[in-house]
C-alpha cells in the first residue's frame, strides 16, 4: 500500500485578513483566516499552513492571536511561517499554538539556526521553506522575502544541506508558478524530492485537481499545499455568511470576481478524485 499523501490548505495572512497574491505578490483580501481554517478542518484537511506574508518585509509578526484562536479548535498540525527569525520567535509561535514553524530568510542568512532549532524543538517541528525561481540558464536558485530577494543559493544543494542540518520537512515553492493556476513545476519538485529523504511539500501553481495529481505522481511530492483552488471554492459556496475584513484590497471580494485560471474545488472532491487516480489520501474509515 503506497503511503498517504497529505493535502494541506495554505493560508496567506496579512494583518487580520486572509489574502492571495500572484507570484507571492499583488495581494487580494479574501476574508478571515479562522473561518477558512475551521471550514478546511471540518472538511478533512490533513494539516494547515499559515504564512504571514508581510512579516518578513516589515519585520513584524502579528499572527499570534490568529494562531491561538485557531489552535483552540483545530486539532491537526498547524505550520506557521513568515518573519520567524530567532529561536525565541520559534518558541513564541509554538507557545501560541503552532505545531511546526517554517523558516526561509532566517535559514538562508544563518543556516546554523536549522541545526539549533531542530536540536531544541525536534526536527519534526522545523520546516524549511525554499522559494525557487528558475533562472534563464535553467538553474534553480533559492530566493527569500516572498521571492524578492536574490541569494545566489542553488536549490538542490540547499535542499540537501537543510536536511543534513536537521530540517524535518521542506516546503518547496515555485515562485514562477505561484498564484498562476498553471500547474506545479514538476521538474523542480521531483528533483528536490528525489535528492532528500525528508518529505517535500509541493507549493505553487495549483489551478485544478489534475495539477495536484500530477505533482504527486510525476513530481514525487509527499504532500501538496495550495490556496486559490480551495479559497475560491469556499467563497463561492459558503463564505457569504462571513464578513470580510476591512483592511486592504477588498474590491475583488466585494464585486465577487473569480479568478479565471483556477477551477475551485473542495477537499472532499479533491481527495475523491485523487483516490480514483490511485493516490492514497486520508478519508473517513468505514470499519467498525
Amino acid at each position: 500500500m503506497a503511503k498517504n499523501i497529505r493535502i494541506i490548505p495554505r493560508l496567506d495572512i496579512k494583518g487580520p485578513n486572509l489574502v492571495k497574491g500572484i507570484h507571492l505578490e499583488g495581494l487580494r483580501v479574501l476574508g478571515k483566516p479562522e473561518d477558512f481554517a475551521r471550514h478546511y478542518y471540518e472538511s478533512g484537511a490533513d494539516e494547515l499552513i499559515y504564512v504571514d506574508v508581510v512579516a518578513s518585509l516589515y519585520e513584524r509578526n502579528s499572527l499570534h492571536d490568529i494562531i491561538s484562536r485557531t489552535a483552540q479548535e483545530i486539532f491537526i498540525p498547524l505550520t506557521v511561517g513568515g518573519g520567524i527569525r530567532t529561536i525565541d520567535d520559534i518558541r513564541e509561535v509554538l507557545r501560541a499554538g503552532a505545531d511546526k514553524v517554517s523558516l526561509n530568510t532566517a535559514a538562508v542568512k544563518n543556516p546554523q539556526i536549522i541545526k539549533e532549532a531542530s536540536r531544541i524543538f525536534g526536527s519534526s517541528t522545523i520546516v524549511v521553506a525554499i522559494e525557487a525561481i528558475r533562472e534563464t540558464d535553467g538553474r534553480y536558485l533559492a530566493y527569500t522575502d516572498n521571492g524578492r530577494q536574490f541569494t545566489g543559493v542553488e536549490v538542490f544543494s540547499w535542499a540537501k544541506q537543510v536536511e543534513a542540518l536537521g530540517a524535518g520537512e521542506i516546503l518547496l515553492t515555485s515562485v514562477d508558478r505561484e498564484g498562476t493556476g498553471q500547474g506545479f513545476d514538476i521538474e523542480l519538485t521531483r528533483k528536490v524530492s528525489d535528492s532528500v529523504s525528508i518529505p517535500v511539500i509541493a507549493h505553487g501553481g495549483a489551478g485544478k485537481i489534475d495539477h495536484i495529481g500530477q505533482v504527486i505522481k510525476e513530481g514525487s511530492a509527499d504532500a501538496v499545499t495550495f490556496a486559490s483552488v480551495l479559497h475560491y471554492d469556499f467563497i463561492k459556496n459558503i463564505s457569504s455568511k462571513f464578513e470580510a475584513g476591512k483592511e486592504g484590497n477588498t474590491e475583488f471580494l466585494n464585486k465577487g470576481i473569480g479568478f479565471s485560471k483556477v477551477s475551485p474545488a473542495g477537499l472532499q472532491e479533491i481527495k475523491n478524485k485523487l483516490g480514483e487516480a490511485g493516490i492514497n489520501c486520508r478519508v473517513a474509515a468505514k470499519g467498525a
Binding site: K3, N4, I5, R6, D46, S123, S124, G168, E169, S197, I198, P199, D222, A223, R282
Partner: peptide
C-alpha cells in the same frame, strides 16, 4: 522516505 510524516 523516512521519517514517516502524515496520516496512516
Amino acid at each position: 522516505k523516512v521519517p514517516q510524516v502524515g496520516w496512516n
